[in-house]
Computed example of a mutant assay.
Amino acid sequence: MGRGVLHLVEALDFLRANGAELLDKTWEHFYISLIALLLGIIAAVPLGVLLTRMKKGAGIAIAVVNIIQTLPSLAILAFFIPLLGVGKVPAIAALFFYSVLPILRNTYTGIKSVNRNLLESGKGIGMTAWEQIRLVELPLAVPVIMAGIRTSAIYLIGWATLASFIGGGGLGDYIFIGLNLYQPEYIIGGAVPVTLLAIVTDAVLHQAERKVTPDGLKGLKEVS
């Protein structure tokens, strides 16, 4: 019990000494993750739609992205250092690679699961291919796509702690300072905000999902 109280006192002292910097690093951590997520959405959603139009090669493309996803995070970060140097840019580039798979897979799955009869009806009333995508397929696939986006966002917030290794900043700075100096208050000061940030981000995206999901689909079970 005494040790727990001691850690609590140390954490409170840490907050008093580093409160303003903690807010800065939390924001820094968030926008690194957010930019990578937005880039992932911009790349993965159109690619997922495109793969549904391919009779061959879709499985291979998703398998390649799967392989990239299995590469160690530090290896990806190190790969970008010779190309982009150190700092936030290579960190965002590496996180972008990890953001793609959940969104791509769910976009592909969501579009493929749309009832073909609805698409035939769209053709029957003269819809173009783009109109079918925009007015039928994407709205119906929204719950599945948003599930992928939420999964990707949670992953990215966790993985963004590694940006500290290459000078990308964020809450990982505190975690690695704590590990190197054996100071638990720094580890707690970095890890707790990361967890809270992930929880809040997931809740916000959940509300966004409800707003963009057609009313008739809101009762359906989400696929993640």
Rank of each mutant, 00 (worst) to 15 (best):
I62Q: 01
L37N: 03
P90A: 10
E120C: 05
A208K: 10
R3E: 05
L119G: 03
A20P: 10
F30C: 06
S113K: 08
L156N: 01
I103H: 02
I92W: 01
I177E: 13
A78G: 14
G57W: 00
V223W: 03
D215Y: 05
A141S: 09
V204P: 13
F30V: 13
I188C: 07
I157Q: 00
G172Q: 07
E28L: 14
I157E: 03
M146P: 04
F96I: 11
G110W: 01
L138V: 13
R210C: 12
L118N: 03
P72Q: 08
G59Q: 01
E209S: 15
P139D: 10
A198H: 02
V194E: 04
T151V: 08
K221F: 05
I177L: 14
G126K: 06
K218G: 05
I149V: 10
D24G: 13
L196M: 08
G170C: 10
L12N: 00
A147K: 03
L196R: 05
V194P: 02
G4H: 01
Y108I: 01
F165E: 11
N115R: 05
G48T: 03
I32T: 14
L140E: 10
Q183G: 02
S152E: 02
A153R: 04
K56D: 10
G87T: 08
F165Q: 12
G124Q: 13
R53M: 08
T52E: 01
N115H: 05
I76V: 15
G158Y: 03
A78S: 15
I187P: 12
L135Y: 11
R53Y: 08
P139N: 06
V114P: 04
L179D: 14
L205P: 06
D24V: 15
M127T: 07
M127G: 03
T109L: 08
L181S: 15
G87H: 11
R210G: 12
L196C: 06
T52S: 07
P139S: 08
D215K: 12
P184I: 12
R134W: 11
N106D: 02
G57M: 00
I41F: 06
R105S: 05
A58E: 00
P143C: 12
L39V: 07
V204Y: 12
P82H: 11
G190C: 12
A191S: 10
K218C: 03
L220F: 09
G168M: 11
G189N: 12
E137N: 09
A203S: 07
I187R: 12
L38C: 14
Y182S: 15
A63Y: 02
A141R: 08
I154M: 06
F30T: 13
M146A: 09
L104Q: 00
S164T: 13
D215M: 07
L104R: 00
F176I: 14
P82W: 13
Y98A: 01
E28I: 12
